[in-house]
């Protein structure tokens, strides 16, 4: 296993997340895909931290996880508020700002 393999795996995970964001219309799955992308970035951070032999990359991942937790809390709160307003989780039906 080399750094390249780890980065490739992170890239594959990020791509899966990107595909999820682009192709799914369930807003919950979209949020989940964003989490996958954040995880892929974290994996790349740790891989390069190991490569360069310092721990600052891992500190950065720690902050990223903190931000991800906050983001999920706010995101799901918005989903609940949205569902209360429109009774849908379909991203294509949420076009209030367009009208």
């Amino acid at each position: 296993m080399t750094i390249g393999h780890l980065v490739t795996l992170a890239g594959i995970l990020f791509t899966i997340g990107m595909l999820g964001v682009l192709s799914r219309r369930n807003i919950l799955i979209v949020l989940l895909s964003i989490e996958l992308m954040l995880n892929a970035a974290a994996l790349a951070f740790v891989a390069f931290a190991v490569r360069h032999g310092n721990l600052e990359g891992q500190v950065m991942v720690f902050f990223a996880i903190t931000v991800a937790a906050a983001e999920v809390a706010v995101g799901l709160a918005i989903v609940i508020a949205l569902f209360r307003l429109r009774v849908t989780v379909d991203t294509d039906k949420v076009n209030l700002l367009k009208q």
Partner: peptide, 24 residues
């Protein structure tokens, strides 16, 4: 988009020699 992104990433890794570098 995904295929392009992934291809670019692997190409960059290969150019940077990351596949020859074992994890220390």
């Amino acid at each position: 988009l995904a295929a392009g992104f992934l291809g670019g990433l692997v190409w960059t890794c290969r150019r940077a020699g990351l596949f020859e570098e074992p994890i220390r």
